[in-house]
C-alpha cells in the first residue's frame, strides 16, 4: 500500500484535477456559450485554489492576487466574450476536426505525456503538492489540443485563456511567493491580450460574418 498524501495535499490535488477536467469539458462543449461558462468556472476553481494556499500557507499577497484574478478571469473576460457572442449571434461552435471520443483520447494521450514528463522532474514545493504541477502541464497541453482541433475563433481564444489558467496553477505550485508586482503584470498582460483578441475577433466577424476559422486558409506557402 502506498502512503496517502496529507489531507491538504489531497484536496489541493483534487482541485487541480478539477481544472484539468474542466479543460476536458471544454473540449466537448458544443455551445460556445457553455465553453465560456466552463472557462469562468475553471478560473473560479483556480481562484479558490489561490485562496486555499493563501489561507493555509499564510501568504497574504495571494489574497490580492485571488481577488484580481476573480475580477478579471471570472467576471471580466467571460463577460467580454459573451458580449461578443451576443453581438455576433452565433451559438454553435465550429465543427471540430475530430469526433468527441477521438479528441478525448488524444487529449488523454498528451496529458499522460505532460504528467509523466513533469512528474519525472521531482520538483518540491512548499505551497502545493507537485501533482498539481504535473496536472497543470496536462492542462496546458490539453488547451493546445483544444486550440488545434476546434475551428472557431472563440474556442481558440478560450483555449488560450485556459492555457493561462494552467500556467496559473503551475505558478501557484512552484512560485507562490512570486512578487506581487510580477503577478499583477502577468494579469495585466492577460487583460491586454483579451482586449486584442476581442478586437481581432470582432474584425474577423465583421469581415466574414462568421466565427469559424475554416475560411482562414488564404495565406500559405
Amino acid at each position: 500500500m502506498s502512503p496517502a498524501p496529507s489531507t491538504y495535499a489531497g484536496v489541493a490535488d483534487v482541485v487541480a484535477v478539477l481544472v484539468l477536467l474542466t479543460e476536458f469539458a471544454m473540449l466537448r462543449a458544443p455551445l460556445l456559450r457553455s465553453q465560456v461558462r466552463l472557462y469562468a468556472f475553471q478560473s473560479l476553481v483556480v481562484t479558490v485554489l489561490a485562496v486555499v494556499i493563501a489561507a493555509t500557507r499564510h501568504i497574504d499577497e495571494l489574497y490580492v492576487l485571488a481577488v484580481l484574478s476573480f475580477v478579471l478571469k471570472v467576471v471580466l473576460v467571460p463577460g467580454l466574450v459573451l458580449r461578443l457572442l451576443r453581438d455576433a449571434d452565433v451559438d454553435l461552435a465550429g465543427s471540430s476536426v475530430l469526433g468527441v471520443p477521438s479528441m478525448i483520447m488524444i487529449a488523454i494521450g498528451v496529458s499522460a505525456f505532460g504528467i509523466f514528463t513533469v512528474g519525472s522532474l521531482h520538483v518540491h514545493s512548499n505551497a502545493l503538492p507537485t501533482t498539481a504541477l504535473a496536472v497543470a502541464a496536462a492542462v496546458v497541453l490539453v488547451a493546445f489540443v483544444l486550440i488545434i482541433l476546434r475551428a472557431d475563433v472563440v474556442s481558440q481564444a478560450i483555449g488560450f485563456f485556459s492555457l493561462e489558467n494552467g500556467v496559473s496553477v503551475a505558478s501557484l505550485v512552484v512560485a507562490a511567493g512570486l512578487p506581487l508586482v510580477v503577478e499583477v503584470a502577468f494579469l495585466f498582460d492577460l487583460l491586454v491580450a483579451v482586449v486584442v483578441f476581442g478586437v481581432i475577433m470582432r474584425v474577423h466577424h465583421g469581415r466574414s460574418q462568421t466565427l469559424s476559422t475554416e475560411d482562414l486558409d488564404r495565406l500559405k506557402g
Binding site: D13, I108, A134
Partner: peptide, 21 residues
C-alpha cells in the same frame, strides 16, 4: 461520449497516481 468521460476519469486516476499524488 459518456463512456469516454468515464474512461477519462479512470485514466486520470492512474496518471495522477504516477504523478506522485
Amino acid at each position: 461520449e459518456f463512456i469516454a468521460a468515464a474512461f477519462l476519469l479512470a485514466v486520470l486516476a492512474v496518471l495522477v497516481f504516477y504523478a506522485g499524488g
